[in-house]
Amino acid sequence: MGVLTLSQYQQLFSQAAHRGDHESPPVRLTSGITPGGTLSIPDSLEVYRRGFIVRLTESLGEIYESVWWVAGDEEFFRLAKTFILSQPSEAYNLSSYGQEFPDFLQAMPPFPDLPFLPSLARFEWLFKNIFHLSQHESVSPEEIQRITQEGNLQFIFGPSVSLFSAPFAVYDLWKVRGTCHDGQPPVEWDHEQRLLLYKKRDQIFVNELDDVEYMILENLLGGSTLEESLTDTARQYPNLEQEQISKLFQIIFHTGIIHRLSTISEKPGAP
């Protein structure tokens, strides 16, 4: 066998690190390796394979802290290892690895006692992303009040402002992460939850929303004007009352989620 090129060596090393527990590392690689210490050749490669799995598991555990807590060590480590070996990292930054973990959980055989795991994981990925987003300066409540009479108003939200909905009460689960439990977490989780998340003063805040509030905000975040958003919501909720809209605006004032206001004529691409 001739000398390995750098590229060949790196391909073989990667293959050895990603191999399954019962597979052998490539002979083309092992035949040329000099192990460190008193390790055998396979054990010296195993240092790197184990280290890689541990490192990525730790990173997933940091992002998906509640999933880890609720699943328990043994199950989380099993899930993480399966995920890591089947979904190689394409990120240069370790903290960017794991976006597909919620989908991976969703595709796994159902967790009969913990059906909320994929939703909880989605919430945690979103939470992690918001943590790294920039904060915005809020439009003052006075400014909002002054011009909200205009129907063709478009709200420009801060970059961290996000909506999240799930068929389970994932925020309630997340809040009690770390507490003792024997199989089932100590909260009522079997109901839908709609959430508004945003960042202020270096902290992430979460507000629970009702269906109407969620729909209006979803439309506004999607770029609809206030008038369009209210009209659309009223179609789905014919009994929409002024009081509900007022309550939503109280939330908007209180949270400071609006960064800027513009009229429809300022819409990108508008003449």
């Binding site: 000398v3 790196q10 090393f13 690190a17 280290g51 890689f52 394409e90 370790l94």
Partner: peptide, 24 residues
Amino acid sequence: WTGLQNANLHDLLPIPFTDESLRC
């Protein structure tokens, strides 16, 4: 090196000390 771009190991991995590595 830390891994392949489509399979990053996020580790500080050993390199062969060769002329090819040096040039690279």
